[in-house]
Design a protein around this nucleic acid. Structure first.
Lengths: 132, 132
DNA sequence: GCAATTGATGTAATAACATAACATCTGCAA
DNA sequence: TTGCAGATGTTATGTTATTACATCAATTGC
């Protein structure tokens, strides 16, 4: 999927996520955009919905937060399943792909005749710096 | 970890989850236990916290719900990472393990010197019956 | 031009999920 | 019998997400 031109609100939300050090909750994004006229959560959620659809933002299910995709320029949908390692201390997120993991999961799924739509892989723990 | 004797509230919550067809939200559990004296969400969340700790219940992050572990008798912590396939139509959940997936993810993690605490793998989609 | 449609936006209200803070109770051990 | 730890009860509140409805702007077909 090619990413269409972002609307004003989508751009604002995306910029906030891009500039952030780590994942942000929808309400944190809202607060950061009050100066730009944002008043209600829906403005954020609507923008996020599109950004997720375009694959330029990911949702971290286990912490109810959102991050900009780590792959500059390129969009993520072509990479198969995206996995995340989330540091519970500093909040840093590492995004990665593993073809073999995809392969195994999709193999299992095929065996069950299950039709996958969206797969979440999130590893919570401590990053190297925080574990030290 | 061996599962200690459950307390009254823990048993009530666990029984509800065991008898359920699929995953339940904390508030759904609360409603099912009003007749047994439950009045507040915290009674459910406190029981769930322990049941999760004992490994007899799993939390599905992507749908904010809880299921009894599918492994009768045995507890889950010994099986490595647990993965779930969740049908978005009928709500049915399949729980499975894949050693190779564990191996790949833990390999990546080791390479990053990341210290994993809790890993989530959830595949949302349609089960065989619902996809037909 | 100007309806009709479509997609984006604004706003208020509410629903759904989760925790903080504090009080009480119960069983057990010093 | 006192003190402690763990479980429980209760109220209030915090956090995340959606419903419902109104408005606005750009595009299309007439």
């Amino acid at each position: 999927m090619t990413t269409p031109q972002l609307t004003k609100n989508q751009s604002l939300v995306f910029d906030v996520l891009e500039k952030a050090e780590g994942p942000l909750s929808a309400y944190t994004i809202l607060d950061k955009l009050r100066d730009h006229g944002f008043r209600a959560p829906l403005q954020v959620y609507r923008a996020l919905e599109k950004l997720l659809e375009y694959g330029v933002v990911h949702r971290l299910e286990s912490i109810n937060s959102f991050v900009a995709c780590a792959h500059p320029g390129d969009n993520c949908h072509s990479h198969g399943i995206v996995a995340f390692a989330i540091c519970e201390s500093c909040g840093q997120v590492m995004e990665f792909h593993d073809h073999e993991v995809d392969h195994r999961l999709m193999g299992w799924v095929r065996g069950q005749k299950f039709k996958p739509e969206k797969t979440t892989i999130e590893i919570r723990g401590l990053c190297e710096a925080c574990a030290a």
